[in-house]
Amino acid sequence: MDIKKGIIDGDRIALAKLITMAEDGKKEAMDIIKELYHRTGNAYLIGITGPPGVGKSTLTAKLARAYSGLGKKIGIIACDPTSPYTGGAILGDRIRMQELFTDPNIFIRSMGSRGHLGGLSRGTRVAVRIMDIFGMDYIFIETVGVGQSEVEIADTADTTIMVLAPGLGDDIQAMKAGIMEIGDIFVVNKADREGAEKTAREIDTMLDFNEKSTWRPKVIMTVAQDNKGINDVLHAIEEHMKYIKDSGIFASKRKEHIKEEILELATQNIMSEIMTGLSKEELLGIVDKVAKREIDPYSASIDIIKPIKGGIQK
C-alpha cells in the first residue's frame, strides 16, 4: 500500500503502519516523515502522568471523548514498560478506553518502552510526529510516573497534567519535590473518596511555595469514571494553552524541542555512521587492544570517529 498517500488521505491503517515502521526504525518511515514534515506543528500535546491506579487512562478517555464531541481529532499514545528480561510487555491501558474504540475522531496506540528509560517509549516522539502529520488536533501522551520518570513527558508535552488521588498521602510527600515543577494542571481524581479535599488543599499549599513561574498551576477535582469535572480540566488545558502561546513560551519551547531533536538525531546519525564504517572484527580488535592496555579508550574513541570527521567538516 502507498503509506504516504494513505496518511494524506486520512487512512487509519496507513497511520498505524507508519507508526509501526517508525517505531521499528525503518528508513522508509523516516523518508515519508521527511517528505511530510511541513505538515507538522499543528497538534497540541498533552502529557498525562501520575502514580499507578489513580485513573489516568479513564481521565484520558473522558478528555478525549469531550474533545471529540467538539469535533476535534485526537491521538492517544499510552506507554507501558517493557520487561527488560523477556522484551515482552502487557499494554493494558486500552481497557479503560473501551468507549473510544469505535469513535472515528480518536486513534489510540499502545507502546512498550522497548528499553527506553525515562517514562516514554522508544517510538513515542516519532509517533507524535506522525499523528501530527496525520492532522490530529490534540495528542495525549499517557505514562506512569512516580518520582523522576515524568520529567521526560513534561519535556515533551505542551501541557502536562499530573493526576493524583486521595489516600496517596505519603506518596505525595515523597514526590512533591519532583512533581511540583512538572504539572501545569493537577487533577485529584476519584474525588468522591474520603480525603479528596485534603489532598487538593495539600497540593495547593505546596504550589504556593513555588514561585519560579508566572503560571499558577490549577488544582481540579474530578471523578473521571462518572464524567465529573472533565469540563473543568478541559478549560484549564485551554487556559494554559493560551498562557503559553501569549507569553511566547510555546514558541520558545517548540524551538527548544526542535534543537533537542536535531541534536538527538545527529547523535544517532553519527553512531550509525561509525557503525557502518567499522566492522565488528575491527571493533573487537580495538576492544582487545584496550583490554590489553596497549592503547587507552580515550584515544580509541578519537580513532574510530576519524574516518567520518572529514565528512562532517565537509
Binding site: G92, I95, Q98, D226
Partner: peptide, 10 residues
C-alpha cells in the same frame, strides 16, 4: 446507576 468499568492489572 451507571455501568461498571473493568479494572485489570496483569
Amino acid at each position: 446507576f451507571g455501568v461498571y468499568q473493568e479494572s485489570v492489572i496483569l
